[in-house]
Amino acid sequence: MKRKVGELILILCFYLFQVSLGRVIAIAGIVPNFLIILPVLFGFFKGKNEGMFVGFFAGMMYDLFFSGLFGFSSLIFIYVGYFAGFFYQKYEEREILIPMSMILIADFGFAFLSYVGNFLLHNRLNVGFFMSRFILPEVVYTLIISVIVYKPILFLSNRLDIVRSRRRIKEIYERNH
């Protein structure tokens, strides 16, 4: 429970980064996608269920105020968390390139699907422009941000586990005495 609350607070923080800090650090109007980093990393650190949980709420925050199609980002983020969960315990956590490449694929896929939904279906066929002006810069910027936040999130994620296991040890200890 503590872990879930911790994750929700982290999602709220990342949402604030996205909408408030994003304005300040935007390069040529491109804000990195902070929120998609979370389901990938939690899926990678803690497995499919955790990834899906984080993905669901991160996607909801992403859509809440600005999207006309509430639930779309949640859907994508759930799948992102689920597929990131396939690599759970398959690699060492210091192998930063694995989660990086997952973030790359996830953000690219998400941005491309939003392009298709928002523009391609409205007869905006200039894929090259959208690719070079919006999607690829966003992916690169998101990757840079994820390199920066990787270690802190890993630390936080482990920290949340320690809290839980300490309590569990205490429970076991009390049961035995």
């Binding site: 497995g47 859907l75 759930i78």
Partner: peptide, 25 residues
């Protein structure tokens, strides 16, 4: 609690959200 079932349930929930957001907020 198998992750596959959770995935299916959440997917359905999201589609429900998307569906309702077409008609009402």
């Amino acid at each position: 609690m198998n992750s596959k079932y959770i995935l299916i349930a959440l997917t359905a929930l999201c589609f429900l959200f998307i569906g309702t957001s077409f008609f009402t907020d």
